[in-house]
Design a protein around this nucleic acid. Structure first.
Length: 218
DNA sequence: ACCCAGGGTCATA
DNA sequence: TATGACCATGGG
């Protein structure tokens, strides 16, 4: 079973996911921080509050009193921590000249800078790289580890970058010349999250059998 | 009432 | 390097 085949099975089952649901690349970045260990429906409420306050802007968030930012993003949970993280991110974003300037950095440099921000870890950085900057980075999350671990295509306890490197290398080989990597990675991560929400619980080890009509748990 | 959600940081050993 | 505590809302 190839990584490409797993993607195709998921795509056949769920169809296009249309990630990342956001109006602008900056909104992708903000929501990537807000969605840390948080249900997306809660992030949507926080995003709506920011728009209602006309505050979906790095300068505004950066210069607003932290308690006010916390109030805007309250539904997303961890609001004090995340207000701080959003502030750190916006300080970097403004300091580095915004999206226009950042867009010119190569992927490795951009990733290194994102990881230097307090509050931006590997998954959040990769969400931003893939969905805001359209770089060919495969996002690893808990669903990804669980899926490939159960399919015996990964050990499950690899380091974040090791697993990401292995999957990226495999998909490079399997998709070379036939598929664009960015759209592939984009859809793949979204499909894994979609699948992860309702993978059959009675027989979780089968994973992909849930996609078949004959799955006993379906 | 309990569990989880589209993680990351920090203190401790 | 490897655990554990902590952050906090909202839906099932």
């Amino acid at each position: 079973m190839t990584f490409l085949a797993v993607h195709d099975a998921l795509f056949a089952a769920y169809g296009p996911q249309r990630w990342w649901p956001a109006r602008t690349p900056f909104e992708v970045m903000v929501s990537a921080v807000l969605t840390q260990n948080t249900a997306w429906t809660n992030v949507e409420k926080a995003i709506a509050n920011l728009h209602a306050a006309d505050a979906m802007d790095a300068e505004i968030i950066l210069h607003a009193p932290p308690p006010r930012v916390a109030a805007w993003i309250r539904p997303a949970g961890y609001f004090n921590v995340k207000a701080k993280r959003l502030r750190n991110f916006c300080a970097w974003y403004v300091e580095r000249g915004g999206g226009k300037t950042l867009r010119r950095l190569d992927t490795a440099a951009l990733r290194h800078e994102l990881l230097s921000i307090n509050g931006v870890g590997p998954e959040t950085a990769d969400d931003i790289l893939l969905y805001a900057f359209h770089r060919p980075i495969f996002v690893i999350d808990a669903y990804t580890r669980r899926l490939f671990s159960r399919l015996r295509m990964a050990e499950g306890d690899e380091s974040y970058d090791t697993l990401r490197g292995q999957i990226e290398a495999s998909l490079h080989r399997e998709a070379r010349g036939k598929r664009e990597l960015v759209p592939l990675f984009n859809e793949y991560h979204a499909l894994i999250v979609r699948h992860g929400k309702d993978v059959c619980k009675p027989r979780p080890r089968c994973e992909l059998c849930c996609l078949a009509a004959r799955c006993p748990a379906a």
